[in-house]
Amino acid sequence: MAEAEAHGHGGETRRDFIYLLGGAMGAIGAAAFAWPLIDSLSPAADTKAASTTEVDLSAIKEGQAVTVKWRGSPVFIRYRTKDEIARAVKDDKASMPDPQPDAARHQDGKPQWLVMLGVCTHLGCIPLGQSSSDKKGDFGGWFCPCHGSHYDTAGRIRKGPAPKNLPVPDYRFVTDTRIVVGEKPKKAAA
């Protein structure tokens, strides 16, 4: 009868409760220890710290493009011609996978400066179109040779497997001819 006394009344026993509690504590302990291991793989503090790049735009002529490295990835900076801007604005209403007006692709009052991450949103290749001899695709912007994505003169995806427009990173005009990539624009300037 000592056995029966160790049991509770409603069919559940103290031993069941201890099993459950022990199991739960074990699971929580394992999860608590797993988290530091998993999170250690996320970007480290020094990786995050090296996250702004300053660029001098004064040497770039109209129609030219430069590529700078920011956070290990290329950033495309293009001084767009009037034609290219007009072509992008004209297509604002065209059907595209990731619709965005040209105005949302550049900072206010500076439509000539297009600053984007030069990383194809499909699988991460670097699209062609930065140098004048490059293949620029069907829309005169950029063309990704890996899997055939075409971007227009505002860096919007128009054709091919990429799902999104080339992302516009945070960047701030320090002066009219200098930008810092990786910093948000100041509210007052906007």
Binding site: L41, S42, P43, T47, R71, G72, S73
Partner: peptide, 17 residues
């Protein structure tokens, strides 16, 4: 992807792991 890379692009942390 950022977690897999250990950064914002494929880089040294990625190679190490």
């Amino acid at each position: 992807t950022t977690w897999l890379w250990g950064g914002f692009a494929v880089d040294n942390p990625t190679l190490n792991r």
